[in-house]
Computed example of a mutant assay.
Amino acid sequence: MTIKAGDKIPSHTFHIMSDDGPATMSTDELFAGKKVVLFGVPGAFTPTCHANHLPGFVEHNDAIKAKGVDTIAVTTVNDVHVVNAWHKASGAGDKVVFLSDGNADFAKAAGLEIDLGMAGMGMRSKRYSMIVDNGVVTQVNIEENPGEAETSSAATILGQL
């Protein structure tokens, strides 16, 4: 069942890269007592994710945070090392928290998984964005076509805040 407004975010532990190497971040750490914009992408470095979706959240970071958002985070079904390389290559700096969902466990728990095996990518995350207030989803925007980033864009999120 796909997550919707009013649902509590599924409990999960993401993998992140810290200054000391690979580490973890729980959904409680990420969402408790905070307003968070979370967006999911099918894969790091993929054309739409890297050149369109992520850059919008970097570009509109200040405007989104000015609307009361504490954290902007992205999750993708890639291992923590690929996610870290993507973070470095993106130029996002500290504007976006990069979360590895390497086995698509979070995507599956939220009902946001998509099988892209026909493209040689296996199980991935749908492209989406959401607003989460203290662990409760208030908005969800899911793309019908994973190659597009309109419904789930930073501009859409700005209009919803």
Rank of each mutant, 00 (worst) to 15 (best):
I72S: 03
N52F: 06
H15E: 15
V80K: 01
F14G: 02
C49Q: 05
M118N: 14
M1E: 13
T2E: 13
A154C: 11
P47D: 08
G91E: 11
G122C: 09
S125I: 01
T75F: 15
G56E: 06
K126C: 07
K35V: 12
K8T: 13
G117I: 03
M123T: 14
A155W: 11
E59W: 00
N103H: 11
V132E: 04
S11G: 11
I3T: 08
H50T: 12
N61Y: 13
A107V: 02
A92S: 15
E144K: 13
T151I: 15
E144N: 13
E113K: 03
G33R: 06
K34Q: 09
T46K: 03
H81W: 13
A5H: 09
P55L: 04
V80P: 03
M121S: 00
A149Y: 01
A119Y: 14
V37M: 05
G159S: 12
T27I: 09
E144S: 13
E150N: 14
K35H: 11
G102S: 12
E29V: 00
E59H: 11
T76R: 03
L38H: 03
G102R: 08
L38I: 05
S153K: 10
I142M: 00
P47T: 13
F106Q: 05
D105S: 15
S125T: 09
G117W: 13
T48S: 08
A66H: 03
H12M: 06
S129F: 01
A92E: 07
V82R: 02
F31W: 08
G147F: 06
T46R: 02
D101R: 02
I114T: 11
V132G: 07
N52W: 00
S100F: 05
T46W: 01
H12T: 02
P22T: 07
K4R: 15
R127W: 05
D70N: 15
S153W: 12
H87M: 03
A89Q: 07
N145T: 08
P10Y: 04
F106M: 07
W86I: 02
S26P: 08
K126G: 00
D133P: 06
L38P: 01
S90D: 06
G33P: 09
N145I: 12
L116Y: 12
I114S: 06
A154T: 01
G120C: 09
F31T: 03
T151V: 15
K95C: 05
D115R: 11
D105C: 00
T24M: 10
D19Q: 14
F57P: 02
L116T: 07
H50D: 15
A32H: 10
K108I: 15
S100Q: 06
N134H: 11
L30D: 07
V82F: 01
D94R: 01
K67Y: 04
A63P: 01
I131G: 04
G33D: 08
V82I: 10
E144T: 15
V77R: 04
N145R: 10
A109F: 02
K4F: 05
I64E: 01
D28Q: 14
A107H: 04
S152E: 04
F57T: 02
G147I: 01
S18G: 14
L158A: 11
D20S: 15
V74M: 14
T46Q: 04
N141T: 12
P47F: 06
G43S: 07
G56Q: 07
P47W: 04
